[in-house]
Computed example of a mutant assay.
Amino acid sequence: MSATLKFSNSTKFQVSEFILMGFPGIHSWQHWLSLPLALLYLSAIGANTLILITICQNSTLQQPMYYFLGILSVVDMGLATTIMPKILAIFWFNAKVISLPECFAQIYAIHCFVGMESGIFLCMAVDRYVAICRPLRYPSIVTNALIVKATLFMVLRNGLFVIPVPVLAAHRIYCSKNEIDHCLCSNLGVTSLACDDRRPNSICQLVLAWLGMGSDLSLIILSYTLILRSVFRLNSAEAASKALSTCTSHLILILFFYTVVVVISVTHLAESKATLTSVLLNVLHNIIPPALNPMVYALRTKELRAVFQKVLCLGLEKK
């Protein structure tokens, strides 16, 4: 499809919309991927909704750790919903066209939700540090007021922090090609079409990533280093095992989340244009964590697993 152009005041032709082509190299049969992606999306929405309902309806789960898990569920549903409806519309209805404002809004939303997820992981790591290393002071430190303040800080930090990314992308000049070899509007994918210098966008994204997610990851590593040091000092093997079991699910999700972020970043730097691998990783990174997070917590957290089993048994009895 040819680019839609309009004449701008700067005497340059400017595209008025982008066309999301989907997965590069497999355009003819990429619609078959809609089924697993739709199932992942439904799983993410259903599982996270169940997590929220379970926490709200069970007083035993109304504790700081589960409050953070509930907040993570809300962020996960927001992240998945930011990309999946448009991706499925591309596959099912060939709705490839996206306006420039919609595209830049999606760039903002993706960066915002990914940053908030990183921030919530940090809050959960600090919560586990206080619970294991300062157990007697835990009730006085991790209060409901602290949870509200930490959540508001993460929302405001990422909401304001990522504004330069879409703003800089919107100020590029898109004067020729408007077909994006991607399923979503990624910052580097969009700015690769710009006719002027896109280095400010790349530098901005790299700097913000290191300042935001890089600092989160550094503090998470510090928290778990202190946790492990405290656990290994315990005289009771049973107490040490119990302390570590509460952190295992969190560590699994953190490793997956940040490992994929690093791989995507390295792939973007190493390749001059989008490839099937880089696009697939980018899409899966935005949909697999929302689907995986509640399942891992449900399987690894004893209290949550017990409540889930109780809910499922009640459901079967009613049938």
Results as ranks from 00 to 15, higher is better:
Leu228Gly: 00
Tyr138Trp: 13
Arg134Ser: 08
Ala80Leu: 09
Tyr67Val: 10
Val311His: 06
Tyr66Pro: 02
Ala298Met: 15
Met84Asp: 02
Val261Ala: 12
Ala270Ile: 11
Leu152Gly: 08
Lys318His: 11
Gly315Val: 13
Lys86Asp: 11
Gln309His: 13
Val155Glu: 00
Leu206Tyr: 10
Tyr258Pro: 05
Ser99Phe: 03
Leu39Ala: 08
Leu253Gly: 02
Ala38Phe: 15
Ala3Gly: 15
Arg137Tyr: 03
Thr60Leu: 07
Tyr41Gly: 01
Ile51Val: 15
Arg128Glu: 02
Phe23Val: 05
Tyr67Ala: 12
Thr248Ala: 14
Pro164Met: 11
Phe308Glu: 04
Leu228Cys: 07
Arg172Asn: 12
Cys204Thr: 15
Lys319Phe: 11
His268Ser: 11
Val296Cys: 14
Cys313Ser: 13
Gly70Val: 05
Gln63Thr: 15
Cys195Ile: 09
Ile287Ala: 10
Ala125Ile: 05
Trp92Ile: 09
Tyr174Asp: 08
Ser272Leu: 10
Leu219Arg: 10
Ser245Lys: 09
Leu251Ser: 07
Leu50Asp: 01
Arg199Thr: 14
Val266Arg: 06
Val261Arg: 09
Val231Tyr: 01
Ala274Met: 11
Asp127Trp: 10
Tyr41Trp: 13
Ile71Trp: 02
Ile264Arg: 05
Val74Asp: 09
Arg157Met: 11
Ser218Glu: 02
Cys204Gly: 04
Arg305Leu: 08
Ala298Glu: 07
Cys123Arg: 03
Ile180Met: 05
Ala170His: 12
Leu281His: 01
Ser223Cys: 15
Met21Thr: 08
Cys195Leu: 14
Gly115Tyr: 04
Glu238Ser: 14
Thr60Phe: 08
Asn187Gln: 10
Cys103Ser: 14
Ala38His: 09
Asn9Phe: 05
Ile287Asp: 07
Val283Asn: 01
His111Trp: 14
Leu208Ser: 03
Gln14Trp: 08
Ser278Asp: 13
